[in-house]
């Protein structure tokens, strides 16, 4: 069976500068893979290649065995890809529930005409989207926030809502961009537990870019370390942590 997400020899070149050079990794269903590395290592660029916001100069991205390298970002969602953002991108002017419904609408098909003329399909679509959203809220214990305007949320709750929104897409692959950024240690621990719960209950594959080792160590099954656009090391978290090349990259040569 093919992996939920596979990167084969991804390369991204900006002019003379090789931002990503030959990165390959695999994420299987139910697996959490962490992508770490010093600043400027090329993690975000790689991330954007997976989501489709950044075209790669070489290599392939495969979702569930299907080549999506040339596919636009919005089309990858239909194939089961969902993501959260480094800076929370919730939709202002909408409540939490309305934010989730935008995602849940992925599964409905009401078009402009149906909506405007209030044809029967519209009510069906709205109801199914709302049901799905409320279910996800319940799953994450956020039901009490349903009608809160998202711009009033503190960052911890905002991240949760963003996660909930991504889950409304019923993804097979979930991409998380620094999900713990801005959270204090207690919030981080809760978040990690939540992600583990999501992994075990929904069985989706997860790829996360993270700096906080407090997230990476307990959560990830597999860690990929990048530096200067290349994969430096790859393996279980503890092995990677003890890898001398990794330590050198993070801490400098003298320590190793």
């Amino acid at each position: 069976m093919s992996a939920a997400l596979e990167l084969r020899d991804i390369g991204v070149q900006f002019g003379q500068f090789q931002a990503v050079d030959g990165v390959s990794l695999t994420v299987n269903a139910g697996e959490v893979v962490g992508l770490i590395g010093p600043n400027g290592a090329g993690k975000t660029v790689t991330f954007n290649v997976v989501t489709g916001l950044q075209p790669s100069t070489r290599g392939q991205v495969l979702l569930g065995g299907q080549d999506v390298t040339r596919l636009a970002a919005h089309s990858r969602t239909a194939l089961g890809l969902a993501r959260t953002f480094q800076v929370v991108q919730l939709f202002a002017g909408m409540t939490v529930l309305e934010n989730l419904m935008v995602a849940a609408h992925r599964h409905t098909h009401a078009g402009v005409v149906v909506d405007a003329l209030r044809l029967p399909g519209r009510r069906r679509a709205l109801r199914s989207a709302e049901e799905r959203s409320r279910a996800v809220l319940a799953f994450l214990d956020l039901s009490h926030l349903a009608d809160v305007e998202v711009t009033t949320l503190p960052v911890g709750q905002a991240r949760l809502v963003e996660l909930a929104r991504a889950l409304c897409l019923t993804p097979k692959v979930l991409l998380l961009d620094e999900p713990a950024s801005g959270l204090d240690p207690a919030e981080t621990a809760d978040f990690v537990a939540l992600l583990a719960h999501v992994r075990s209950t929904l069985g989706c594959a997860m790829l996360l870019v993270e700096h906080d080792m407090g997230v990476v160590m307990p959560l990830c099954d597999h860690v990929v370390v990048m530096d200067f656009g290349k994969v430096l090391a790859s393996g279980p978290p503890l092995d990677v942590r003890d890898d001398p090349a990794v330590r050198a990259a993070y801490l400098g040569d003298e320590v190793a």
């Binding site: 919005h74 089309s75 969602t77 239909a78 969902a82 993501r83 995602a103 609408h105």
Partner: peptide, 8 residues
């Protein structure tokens, strides 16, 4: 970008 991430 977020809207595109929602599949639109």
């Amino acid at each position: 970008p977020a809207t595109a991430a929602m599949g639109f």
